[in-house]
Every structure is written in C-alpha cells, then in structure tokens.
Amino acid sequence: MSDLIFNVDSVTLRFGGVVSLNDVSLHQKRGEILAVIGPNGAGKTSLFNSLTGVYQPQEGSIFFTNREGKVISIIGKKAHRVASAGVARTFQASRMFSALTTFENVKIGAESHRGIGVIGAMVKGPRTRRGERHSDERTEELLKFVGLYDKANVISSSLSYGDRRRLEIARGLATDPQVLLLDEPAAGTNPAEKIQLTELIRKVRDEMGVSILLIEHDMKLVMALAERLYVLNFGSVIAEGSPEAIRSNPVVIEAYLGSSDDESEKSPS
C-alpha cells in the first residue's frame, strides 16, 4: 500500500473553459525517479501545482504517503501543509528569496517545519539557540551536498541559472521531504551545468533516499535519469513506460513532431 509515494486517480483540473488536466491518472513508487514530459501547455506544471496543493483539481483524487507511512489526501490541503507533509518542489521560473543570501534561503527551508516559539525568539532562549544551531548545521550540510558552500553568503539573485536550480534543490531538501518535484531544472543551464545537475539529482535519490518527480524538455537528461515516464499532451496522459519504450512510441513521436512520417526516426526533443 505505502510503497506508492503518489497515487493520482482521474484528476481533472479546469480554469473556466480551459481543461489543464483531463482525467489524469498516474502513480510513483517510493524511491523512483519518474519523469513527466510533453509539449508546452500540456499541463505538466498544472500537475505539479495540483500535487503540491497550489491548485485544487475539481475531480479525482491525489494520495500521498507521508514520512510515517500514512496515506493522506492532497486535495483540499493548503500548499504549506502539503510541503510540511513531505512534498518539496522547485519552480519552472526559479523562485528564490532573492534579497536573501544563499545560506538564508536554505536555512528558511531547514527551519520552517519546527514549532514557532515567539517568546523564545524574542528573548533568544535556549530552545531557540539550539534550533538555530541545528538549522545552521543542516544548511551547511546541504550547501556542501549541492556544491554551493563557497557561495553561501552571496545574495541569491546574483547566482547563475545553474546555481539557482541547485539552491532551490537545497532549499527543498532542507524541508526533509519524501519526494522532490523538479519543474524543468535544466532550463537555462549550459551543457556542463546539465551534467552536474544530472549527477546531483541522482545523488539526491541514491544518498538521501528522496523520490524524484521530474519535468524536463531536455531528452538527454530525461533519458539518463528517468526510470519511467509519463507523456502528457493537451492535459491527458497519452503514454507511459520505460525510456526505451517511450522513445519508440509512435503516439509520442506524433505529439512532439506532428504527423510527418519522415521525421519519425528522430527521437523527440
């Protein structure tokens, strides 16, 4: 039962007349690196927003297995509750706290799921001090893990695209998640950064045991990482399977390249 981190069943999400997700069903096993691909406007980001409580789908169910192994429903929960339950994410257009340093960005993630002691914070009591120290240590660890330790005191808005992605990953990991949702992490990065990113994502899963759900256009990265894929088009799942199966699936090729037969030899990109 609880070896499914996500279990999405017949989810439909509409904005007025626009159907962003149409009867989408998918599941992710614990520890899996799962990818969602599809052309622009297919509904990938909408799916992420539904999984994280930012959007509330009108139909269907989304179940998530939390740290304690309890299956909880995502629909109807506020985004911050979903995050606390163990779903971390990055954003397509990276969203950092841009006036804060790299260190502070990650620290906010590390300390957000502990209780708030207002009085303790006002007098800087022992519990607050201990909490600060703990978050500092965790932040340092994560900055080393993603390779941003030497940029700890840089104002985050001055980071390069690649570094911003890594910062967002570190911030998400700081919340001690069960699953990390990455929305086009390779967008805007250069080839060298892409290789580093691929390694980092695999390391997150292998060393931290965090499941990965990935949206990506870069097929090389997807094929290198993903163990299984879903293909979305016009809000519907049109295919599911291993990278090899997806690569040669005619439906997918058509969705990506239109119906011109002579191009079907090429892999979708």
Binding site: R95, F97, S112
Partner: peptide
C-alpha cells in the same frame, strides 16, 4: 518576497 515559494517550504 515570495509567498508561493514560502508556502512551498512549509511556511
């Protein structure tokens, strides 16, 4: 700075 991002880390 960014309420959506803040919520995404559980605030």
């Amino acid at each position: 700075e960014d309420e959506v991002a803040a919520e995404s880390v559980g605030i």
